[in-house]
Write a protein that binds this DNA or RNA. Sequence first.
DNA 1: GCAAAAGTGTTCCTTGTACACCCATGG
DNA 2: CCATGGGTGTACAAGGAACACTTTTGC
Lengths: 227, 227
Amino acid sequence: MRKNNTNSANVEHPEVTVDVLIFTISDNKLKIILTKRGKDPFKGYWALPGVFVNMNESLLDAASRALKEKTGVEIEKVYLEQLYTFGELSKNSKSRVVTVAYFVLSNNYKLTPIKSPSVRELNLFSVNRLPELAFNHKMIIKKAVDRLRSKIEYSNIVLGLLPEKFRLSDMQKTYEIILNAKLDKRNFRKKMLGLKLLQPVGEKDLQGAHRPAMLYRFISKKTILFD
Amino acid sequence: MRKNNTNSANVEHPEVTVDVLIFTISDNKLKIILTKRGKDPFKGYWALPGVFVNMNESLLDAASRALKEKTGVEIEKVYLEQLYTFGELSKNSKSRVVTVAYFVLSNNYKLTPIKSPSVRELNLFSVNRLPELAFNHKMIIKKAVDRLRSKIEYSNIVLGLLPEKFRLSDMQKTYEIILNAKLDKRNFRKKMLGLKLLQPVGEKDLQGAHRPAMLYRFISKKTILFD
DNA sequence: GCAAAAGTGTTCCTTGTACACCCATGG
DNA sequence: CCATGGGTGTACAAGGAACACTTTTGC
């Protein structure tokens, strides 16, 4: 996308990595997938899954590869958007890296053993109870959570965190977890149904020990911004 | 910000560039600064000013350098935010480049001759009447204009396009240019003054041949999001 | 029959929108 | 005195927020 500057062709350049922030709701909490680093710098610390960007792949390809290789997540099944690009000079490492962060919403992530030499350990952490993290990853996660919090208010991205069919109370619970606030049930339903994005499926939820709830699905899985 | 992956240390990597999109209001239009390329690929085409990111500078430093070296704009005097990072594989060039785009608002940009060997020619173009552009720069500009258009509605970034002291009608005109819509004068004033972000300065505008207008300034130059 | 979640309307308040006339100045 | 842009208020509509009771089911 840029000039072929012959002056810089044989000069040292920053390396480019892609990190992925995979969020999911689990145990009534907003959680994120982290891996334990097996190498210095920050060996033994928890960090975002990430890969170096190769010459022959786009940033999106690299994000997809990071998902698959490092966490077993299939990109077709998740919501993914670019978050931000970080390129400060690192105090903790001599390498010079530019990191493009992507944020991902997954509705049913289950930890599975990854058979990759670069993945030591993988775990879900509540974003409210993070361990000590490598690099500037704590700040990156904060930025992503802020984005999620604001975007859920003016878009339908919540669909990335919900299963195909869900109860309105599931949806409300998801909003409440992310916004960390209790919402009014009647107003919530009025608003959501008024958006005309949901469709009742002809089934009822039979899980609960009590009155079964209507199940809904999103008419379209396309991301929509309100207002 | 990332792993020191020994496997990739001596492998080819994408190069990283920073491009800057400098917007200003001139001649009652939203304009952007472009430079004419002196080298292939796209020699002779207009393009966004940009630089390669060096090993010893942050992305922000690189953006600042691009502004100064390529356009004469001083970073202290402008609003700057990261727009997006582009990293598709290029069809038109064998080089592999990741481009971080920054968008900049300047309130009083005047074209000045730049004494840099890499700057052939510099000009302001209305975003509605762009020439044929190098790389994917047309798409990048569109994305930036969209961002500006939406962000001016829920933030005070218009201050980046206004001088220190201004008339409310100047401010309204700026909104109208960017939104490409006529706004109601009374509602506009009510809204803007209701935000409590403006302070009347004890002076009146003596330019017009008619009734002089009150001048205002922003109480703070900090960027604020509404809602 | 009781515990538990599902489902449902109305009132009030805030905010946005439409709209037209007088004012101050320079020439 | 006239042309030009500056400056002001009110009525209506729409959307958000507060708030409590009945329904359906499993046990």
